[in-house]
Amino acid sequence: MPFLLFGIASVVFLVSRMTPGDPLVTIVGERNLNNPDIVAAAKAKWGLDQSVLQQYFAFMKNLVKGNLGTSFTTRQPVMHDLWQRLPATLELTMCALVGGVSVGIVLGVLAARHRNKFIDHIARFFALIGSSLPAFWAGLLLLYVFYARFGWLPGPGRIDPRGIAPNRVTGFYTVDSLLQGDFGLFKDSVMHLILPATVLGWGVVGIVSRLVRASLLDEFSIDYVRVARAMGLRERTVVNTHALRNALLPTITIVAFTFAFLLTGAVLTETVFSWPGVGSYAVDASRNLDYPAIIGVTLLGGTAFLLTNLFSDIAYAFADPRIRLS
């Protein structure tokens, strides 16, 4: 784990030095190259007048201090930007994750109970669409239908553009608006979450339902299910209280993988929905070749991925007593 963190930082350093030409450009931006003061300061801070090895140490030292450089576009420290934007992404991905996993489990159970029947094929088609759909395109289409055409749901953004964002406590607009007791704002932020969370969650549905179906079918062939059926229990009881509990264990491990999927989706979904999160920050940064910001987001993504892996391992140990014993 610490090794991987270290490795992630090293890869990011490598990527940041891959730019053809002067690494100075990637640190201060083209516009500031003519300003001798800024150039000298940056050189000193990142060790650019020294060897690559020393540059690497300077990079690591700055990293440990939480210094990721200054974004060219926002002119703020990248760390500050990321901190500002992280809650928006977390709010969106959590909604998508909860929604996607719930629908995925239901679909997976339905598919397994009606194996190779019509329902199974439909569930599978729905799930495969989810992993084949370009998120940015689906977002555009949903916006066109539900917002522009029929006006059932609000457009892009986290809240109505005329509204005022709630005071930041957690950074989750839904939670913060409730803390303020502003139910109008709460409703508004929930409505704004529906479309992007649907786009993002659909992919999760595919991953989860496929897994739940497969592991439920495995459980069905084990003796305890046969016993439960022979005892004359209702099929619903057999599935929901006996087989499903065991079949859901592998789903926990998939959460880490799903999270990577969500991060990928968030990058594109946030762009379409003008969602002010880390994903759209990454896209803006890429479009403007804002290197410090790109590097910051990549680092954050890698670290987040590691943490979810760790988290899912721990959760698995909690859910499965056999692992705790061994």
Binding site: T19, S286, I294, T298, L306
Partner: peptide
Amino acid sequence: AFPPILLAMAITASLG
């Protein structure tokens, strides 16, 4: 350890 799209974005942006 990286989400593929983020690393691909970073590398592409660096290379141009």
